[in-house]
Design a protein around this nucleic acid. Structure first.
Lengths: 200, 200, 200, 200
DNA sequence: GATGAATGAGACTTCATTCAT
DNA sequence: CATGAATGAAGTCTCATTCAT
């Protein structure tokens, strides 16, 4: 009966969902939490009914966007976890990878910013699960490297300092339309020089 | 003629406007741009009609809030401008003062974050004037210190790095309810050690 | 105890009420039923609390305005009622006096327009009494003259025609800022020539 | 692709917009400028969100209503412009057609009344364009006929007299629920007899 | 008597979401 | 699958009115 095979439909489905999420990320960069489903549809060049065909509501879309970003962020930093070398070097490498990813992938940037903001834009506690997972897959491994690397009494504080700086610098650059000029190495070097010289 | 003198009325007005702005700042920290006038009124313990008695609309309120914060931020960093000593020390002092102010004064935090985000939450270009003024009164003096201090070819880049880190770290701490534990000296030391060791 | 005598207070009272009504009439000409008490206060150069000191609410003010206008309209046409001559001449004279009054006295213009519009702007039936009184004191005497003058089967129709034309022409002129150029005789002549030639 | 074709959607849109405008005209007759979108929606038997689906706000709706009425008024008087015969006869014919249209089509009545009132209900100068167009398409052609017909030194004054009378009489009748009894010929005859006898 | 600070009912408007096609 | 017409809950804002001074 169906003019398309199940496989074809699945392919369309996946393509559409990606298309919508990417559009949503771009709109989010411009308008923040005030993004409207209509804007997303326009950016994706779809009817806005179509967005609802794939996502039950706005929050589901954003949630999916962030979970997806979490997966990609995790993949991006994976090399640093398995890398040879001192913990602090690994942490530096981790930071560099995260920053790079965050610059090319809007969704990952949004994820990091949203986590740094502790989801304060989002009503309800729909995102607790996501936050926990972020902790387990990104933040805690990073804290562990810091702990080993500097033996600090409060590696969390240091991790926060690094994480805050990374996100803060990226935000400043991205929102002032300087995405292409972001000096990844400059930022990471500055932060880790700072960390190291304090340790000395 | 008048049952209250003009002076009495002016005093009431000023008091109420402060009260409303402070309430608005607190609500903004919780809900961001999605703050509702109703929430502000409740927080200020006023009828919501009263908020509209003083502010024509939400944007006017936020605009006033930010201009007020700009004045207070400027006052807060003034000592660093007139201080004796090397430019880099002055810049460090400036950063420390700004960070301290930003922690105790929610409006100033909101101002810095909003500038870092390039007002992307705010529709229209109502805030261009405010941004320019921020540049003249806060950012450019800071860039000047950096320029003198490190002779860098791009003091702006360094200033952005510092500014981004400050705002990023503060955001992380404030939104994760760690306002009282923020280690101002730790943050500023880290950043400036990083800057200095790169210079060496 | 009182620093003012009762007479002085009454004088102030009357003066203020006139002042407010006149201001209200001017504002009404500009904004129609959408006039705001604040506008009236500004025009009268009074605090807006003062308006409420004299008028319990907006409708009372407008009601008073219209009753007052009715009295003045009645006085203005009185000479025509007692005049010597044919009924049609009296009707013409009546029309001329009404039109003249209506041009110099904004309240009277508002009254006539409001009656012509059958109070469709005003919610409720607060104005039924006023309308009845208008009929008794202005409209019916006019209809009577027409009836005598032309022996028409439907003097009401003719009266409406005249009354509608008068109000329509005045409205057009007043709202297009041509109050000072209104050709009272031209209008009345045209209408009555029309009436007469139909009769012939 | 589309479940409804573009044509189907356009047809729905046009139908709905007409439905809404007609409802708006009816409500306007009852309540004037104080009409509420809710009333319009109820009269049109639509949800009030639907009205906003088609019209951004109340003023846009009224604006569209008036432009639409202008088109229909123009069509209605067209026969008089191309008619054979003396200018004054043409003007009379024009008046008759306009009056007839104005009686059966509430929007046209609203247009004429609004123009006569010089848009004094409407804030801003959104309607200057509409007024100019009205002048070009309705008023000036009428003035031209009058000029030719009577060689008067001020055909505008005469045109205003006629136009004011027409609108005034119609208003009186419509607002006093006598729409069905309006004696079009009686009104036009009266006015033009008046004009002609003055000319003699 | 005179005033403007304070207030909330009620209108205006947005926008997420449903649903028929 | 794809779409946009339709809708109303929930915000925004206005403005008549009250009331303390």
């Amino acid at each position: 009966m169906s003019p398309r095979t199940k496989e074809q439909n699945d392919a369309i489905r996946e393509m559409r969902m990606d298309q919508i999420m990417q559009a949503a990320a771009e709109v989010y960069l411009e308008k923040g939490i005030q993004l409207e489903i209509r804007d997303v549809a326009v950016k994706a060049e779809l009817g806005y009914g179509t967005v609802y065909h794939y996502y039950k509501n706005k929050h589901m879309l954003l949630e999916d966007l962030l979970w997806d970003a979490l997966n990609r962020a995790e993949s991006a930093v994976l090399p640093a976890l398995t890398e040879e070398g001192g913990s602090l070097l690994k942490a530096e490498s981790f930071s560099r990878l995260l920053l790079q990813k965050c610059i090319q992938d809007p969704s990952v940037f949004i994820l990091l910013k949203t986590v740094a903001d502790n989801f304060h834009h989002f009503p309800g506690n729909r995102f607790i699960k996501l936050f926990e997972e972020f902790q387990v897959r990104i933040y805690l491994p990073f804290v562990a490297m810091i702990r080993e690397g500097i033996g600090s009494k409060s590696p969390e504080k240091t991790a926060n300092l690094i994480f805050g700086s990374l996100v803060g610098c990226t935000t400043l650059n991205i929102h002032h339309n300087m995405r292409n000029e972001i000096d990844v190495d400059g930022i990471v070097d500055m932060i880790f020089s700072g960390i190291k010289s304090k340790e000395r």
